[in-house]
Every structure is written in C-alpha cells, then in structure tokens.
Nucleic acid binder design. Structure first.
Lengths: 166, 166
DNA sequence: TTCAACTTTCAAAAGGTTTTGAAAGTTCGG
DNA sequence: CCGAACTTTCAAAACCTTTTGAAAGTTGAA
C-alpha cells in the first residue's frame, strides 16, 4: 500500500472512531494528522490537508490542547504557531479517560447518590432502591478502577492487562 | 426525595449517559424506565410515560431487543406485547461491551492491519509505521481484554477489578 | 505607534440525527 | 375468510451539532 493512501485511511478511521468516543470527527482527524506527521504543523497546513475552514481548524486545535492531546510549538523566528500531537499512546489513552470520566461517570455517580435517598417503603420504592444500589456499585467500581489507571504508569497497565487475558 | 422525582431524574441521567455510549437518548430512557419498573410494560405505557410517539417507541424497543438489553414478554390471554429489561447489571455491561467492540474496536483493527502494509522506506514512512504499530498494540490488547471480559462471569470481573484497585 | 501577520470569535448555513404520525402491514379469534 | 387489535414502516418535520468565513481582536517588529 502507498503511504499516502494509508495515511488517508488512517485519518478517516481515526475520525470515525473519535466520533464514537466523545471527540468530534474533525477533532479526531486533526489529531490523527498530527500523530502521523513527523514535523509540527501550522494551522494553515492542517486546514489545507484536511480541507477545513480556518475557524473549524482553530476550534478543534484548541479543544485538543485542552484535552492535553496536542501541544503548541513555537519555532524561533517564526510568528506562526505550530502543533504537535502527544505520541505516547498510553498518555493519549490516559488523557481520554480523564476527560470521559469527568464528563460521564462523575455526573451519573452524583445523580445515583442523590436518588438513593428515596425513603418511601412500598414495593415499588424497594425495587427502585435495589436497581439503583446495584448500578451504583458498578459505577463506583468503575470510578476507582479508572482513577487507579490514570494514576498508574504504562507498565502497570500493560502488566494488568496481560494478567487479565491470562 | 420522592420516588416519582427520583425515577424521573434517573431516566434523564441514564438518557444522557446513553448518548455518550452509542445508545441514543430515547433508547436509553426506555431502558431506564424498564429497569426501574417492577412489571413488564406495554408499548402504550412506554409512549405515555416518556411522552414519545408510537414510531419512536417501537424503533427503540426493537433496538434494545437487538442489543439483548430488553426482552419481549407475552401475557396469556393478552394480544399486546410487554417488555422487561435485563436487570442483572453485569449482563447489561457485557451486552454493551459486545456491541461497542463490534462497532468500534473491530473496524479500527481491520484498518490498522491493512495500513501496516506500507512498504516505502523513507523517514516519513518509518514514522508512520512506528505510530501505527504502537496503536495496533494497544488496540489488540484492548480487544483480547474485552473478549476475555465478555466470556468471563461476574465474579471473575469483580475480583479482577478489586485486585486492580488494590 | 503603525501595520501586516496571525489568531479568535460567532452568527448564519449546512449537514446529520431523531422524532413524529399517518398509513400500511400483521395476526388471531370468531 | 373478516375485522379489530395491535405492530411496523417511512417520508417529512423538528431538532441538534458542526462548519464556514468574514470581521474583530491580538501581537510583535520596525
């Protein structure tokens, strides 16, 4: 396969994956492009390669910087800003886990805690408490596991995963 | 807190969570409603409670059945169909993992395998192969781990998670 | 201070997804 | 068979998210 074709395929696939992961299509494509380019790219170059508007490029680059997946890089003597991606996959995964945990898991845990306070005592309320308690257990387990993952290093992670798959 | 209020909050929260998880808002709300109701509900009752149209209810109930998260239940002497949710949380999680793995992880692994075939040998191609190889490693590890999870039972899962969080 | 180079903003347009509801389809008891 | 009770379908409408691009804002060298 040609390098060019492979690169395009990767950018498309990463975009599709991203959109299933709370990262919008373009944001993921910008990330993919930076991941596979050996040099830092300017906004102009990103716009050109992905055929997106200036505003769109700017917005998504900013978002990637917020997530900690992309860094600004200034070249001496150049006015323009250049961008590089975090290339350590384990770091990429950690950064994504951090964001998703904050945006998804933490809010639902807050709601589950709130609504555990139902104190009627008929059969229906009983059933409700039972379901909520069960969900809460899983949510909290997931929360501590992810918290642990985020704080751990890659070797620990790979090790644990290898154990898990025997 | 009142049972009614708590139930509404749960349905809303589950809907929001679902939409981050490849399950559309209404589909997740139908699932939430069935999760917390002690009796099987008819399409009519679901439409009424969630204030959604007949078509919408039908579509999302079908989708939940496809995912294995909801079952049809026929009451003797009744023409209508009734629905119950899978209430075992561990099963719910397994079913979701199965669907998402199929729709997200497997396609990207296919692409990664394809594009590993780049055989140019300049610096740029080298960088490309390096990034792809690294991502592929993680993707495959995630795939086997999830495969293991799906095949395992709840105790194994809870045990492993407890180990992971020390 | 000025100006050109660059970045950011944001309202409007485009594009995508979900919902509606009426019509068509199915099923079963009589 | 028939008709009532129910389910499914699908085109159009509503809604939501993303993208555009022009204008406003910022920055730094001279």
């Amino acid at each position: 396969m040609e390098l060019q074709e492979a690169q395009d395929k990767f950018i498309q696939a990463w975009g599709t994956l991203g959109s299933h992961w709370g990262i919008n299509r373009t944001m993921a494509q910008v990330h993919a492009l930076l991941l596979i380019s050996e040099n830092p790219l300017s906004a102009e170059e990103i716009m050109g390669t992905l055929k997106i508007s200036r505003g769109n490029a700017n917005m998504n680059i900013r978002a990637l910087i917020d997530w900690g997946l992309v860094f600004k890089e200034l070249k001496p003597g150049e006015r323009k800003e250049f961008f590089v991606a975090e290339k350590e996959m384990w770091e990429v995964i950690r950064k994504i886990i951090i964001q998703r945990k904050k945006k998804e898991l933490e809010p639902i845990i807050r709601v589950l805690n709130d609504i555990s306070e139902v104190n009627e005592d008929d059969k229906e309320a009983e059933e409700f408490r039972k379901v909520i308690k069960d969900i809460r257990l899983f949510a909290q387990k997931a929360d501590s596991t992810l918290e642990g993952l985020v704080k751990s290093d890659q070797n620990w992670f790979v090790g644990t995963f290898l154990n898990m798959i025997k």
